[in-house]
Design a protein around this nucleic acid. Structure first.
Length: 423
RNA sequence: GGAGAGAUGGCAGAGUGGUCGAAUGCACUGGUCUUGAAAACCAGCGUACCGAGAGGUACCGGGGGUUCGAAUCCCUCUCUCUCCGCCA
């Protein structure tokens, strides 16, 4: 959520920035400024009456104590009137506050200056590319065939137990999953991230904190009996560790990591990219979350990008890094880099990581602050990224490293799997 | 599932109608003392909004009510804890 103070200070910057997303915010900003002005005027008026009422109440108390009951009672006339006024004003104030809040929720984050205007993924900029795209032998297969040939993943079994999009990993497939989780967590820990094992269900307050609610309400699995939501990413519970906190600036950057399964309803995306591991209702992901002060957040974003690149290098996968254009970046993001690995048999790029700086967009909702050098509280910048989403990494590993003799496991990962080839 | 207790500042914990944004202790920050440290002593120490400032307003889990006046009384919701039962 954008800060109203910022909209007051630089409405034009915000309107122009949002144009890069293809969003025309001029009407909303205009309405917000008007409502905000009214709100503050009414608040001021109400506070004046409250001050008067407080003073009178004090006076009445003193008068009663000194036995001047008649005088005290005469003052009560005025307080009665004030009371009604205050009630009316406060109702008006609440209405305006609600309107303002509702409007604020509709505005996405303002893109960073480096973000290009654009409509969708076709307008994203490739900023780097690494690794060689393998030339596969003639009988090379897509990962869903490999998964079944080598008995690694049983999609039909998942359908029986739960439904489409809930694969069952078996034997070497299951072990590979477990190995990747440990590999990623160890690498992240080695880079200074504190490891967490957070809850997989969160309450509504947490959903609002990171912006899943109300923006993406229908994307989360919901347990209405208990008022809980299955997390769509570890970002939600891990970032909410810091909700309503004033963190110590000396601890910056605060770096956290955690593995969780992720649950997504993927409503409205049936039939699109659902083959194999490309899009699932439940998948495993290791997430990194960082918190720092505004002056260092973009350097930290670069550091996170470099860290993720290092992971893909160790997995010996070809990848490219994209800077998302305004229209393709998420609602809450100021700047997002996507990592895509090349899946050689499908002959397409698969998104395996998305790294974003949210600036104060999340922390404003989270009330996540630090104290600056003057002792004033300021909103932190929050960032996060996948390091790494497992299914598509697995898909690329299987496809790219297949040989006529079996599927080779990259050296870094083989230390975790205990085997270096799947036959 | 049954029974009970509770929700107050970073933490612990007082406060049952006015002078309470709130005692006290711990923690934290600054200072005195000390070769240094500890101890002791002194001072400071919640958040948000409005205001140039003085200052004002709100907040004692959320919402509503009683009252001139509510942390304190009433209603209601939520959450937490303890004991019993069941159970990984």
């Amino acid at each position: 959520m954008l800060q109203i103070q910022r909209i007051r200070q630089e409405p034009e910057t915000i309107i122009n920035g949002l144009k890069k997303r293809g969003v025309d915010a001029s009407q909303t900003v205009h309405d917000l400024l008007e409502i905000d002005g009214q709100r503050r005027a009414i608040r001021h008026k109400m506070e004046e009456k409250q001050a008067r009422s407080n003073a009178l109440a004090k006076e009445i108390g003193t008068l009663f104590k000194s036995g001047k009951g008649a005088e005290a009672n005469s003052l009560k006339n005025e307080t009665g009137l004030l009371k009604q006024d205050i009630k009316d004003l406060s109702e008006e104030l609440h209405t305006l506050e609600e309107k303002e809040h509702t409007l604020l929720l509709t505005l996405p984050n303002v893109p960073h200056p480096s973000v290009k205007a654009g409509k969708d993924e076709t307008d994203n900029e490739e900023v780097s590319r690494s690794g060689d795209i393998p030339s596969l032998h003639e009988d090379a297969k897509p990962h869903w065939d490999l998964a079944s040939d080598y008995n690694l993943i049983d999609f039909e079994l998942g359908v029986k137990i739960s439904g489409a999009g809930f694969p069952v990993y078996v034997n070497h497939g299951a072990r590979l999953q477990r190995a990747m989780i440990n590999f990623f967590l160890d690498e992240n820990r080695g880079a200074g991230y504190t490891e967490y094992q957070p809850p997989h269900f969160v309450n509504a307050a947490s959903g609002y904190g990171t912006g899943q609610l109300p923006d993406k309400e229908g994307q989360m699995y919901e347990m209405p009996l208990d008022g809980l939501y299955a997390i769509p990413t570890a970002e939600v519970p891990i970032t909410n560790i810091f909700r309503d906190e004033i963190v110590n600036a000396a601890d910056f950057p605060i770096k956290s990591t955690g593995y969780t399964p992720c649950f997504r309803r993927e409503a409205g995306s049936y039939g699109k990219d659902v083959r194999g591991l490309n899009r699932l209702h439940q998948f495993d992901k290791v997430e990194i979350v960082s918190i720092t002060d505004p002056s260092n957040s973009y350097a930290l974003l670069d550091e996170m990008v470099a860290h993720i690149a290092g992971l893909l290098d160790k997995l010996e996968l070809p990848y490219r890094v994209l800077r998302l254009c305004g229209g393709d970046a998420g609602f809450t993001s100021a700047l997002t880099y996507d990592f895509e690995v090349y899946s050689a048999a499908q002959q397409r790029w698969l998104e395996v990581s998305s790294v974003s700086n949210f600036e104060t967009f999340q922390s404003n909702r989270l009330k996540l602050r630090y104290r600056d050098e003057n002792g004033k509280t300021q909103l932190c910048h929050t960032l996060n990224g996948s390091a790494m989403a497992l299914p598509r990494v697995l898909a690329a590993l299987l496809e790219n490293h297949q040989t006529p003799h079996g599927i080779k496991i990259p050296k870094a990962l083989a230390e975790y799997t205990g085997f270096d080839i799947i036959k």
